[in-house]
Amino acid sequence: MNIFRLTGDLSHLAAIIILLLKIWKSRSCAGISGKSQILFALVFTTRYLDLFTSFISLYNTCMKLIYIGCAYATVYLIYAKFRATYDGNHDSFRVEFLVVPVGGLSVLINHDFSPLEILWTFSIYLESVAILPQLFMISKTGEAETITTHYLFCLGLYRALYLFNWIWRFYFEGFFDMIAIVAGVVQTVLYCDFFYLYVTKVLKGKKLSLPA
């Protein structure tokens, strides 16, 4: 555990909780892509199957359970409790265009051709692109609530901090994992455009809106 890893995890946790609270407090999931949230629930489910097979630490187990629990709670709020506020018309990204290629890639490029390992690889690849329906929705509506941009910033920051974590681990522990690193770079790059808008607009007190 190093400082980048810890702050990355906390940033991830903050993102998840910001989104849950935003939906809960406003009693609305307007502007939130339910498809991205389903993908994240799928990511956590397929990655944390090792909860049944290996124990790493109390921290590790607790965080996994919190992430999974919050992911499903978010999906429940969007598709059940506050379904009436869900903006399905603007959430029109075709997720099969992500899930099918990612599934194929995880079968082709993995560390070990075993079910758990392939599912772990699938989760890593899928996470890297799971935010695309949300970004697509924002580009379609041309705007995002400020609280939604805070969520996206924390979520993007998390993987960027993991990149520093992996550099740290490579130098000090000799660890590297090409699958996680390449996917993590892709994931972080997808947020770059958003990071720019966040810094130049949201942090200066303006609402995030895209030119028509």
Binding site: S54, Y67, H111, Y162, N165, F176, D177, M178
Partner: peptide, 10 residues
């Protein structure tokens, strides 16, 4: 081949 990290990350 790829060297694999221990799966202690989230």
């Amino acid at each position: 081949a790829f060297k694999q990290m221990e799966k202690d990350e989230l």
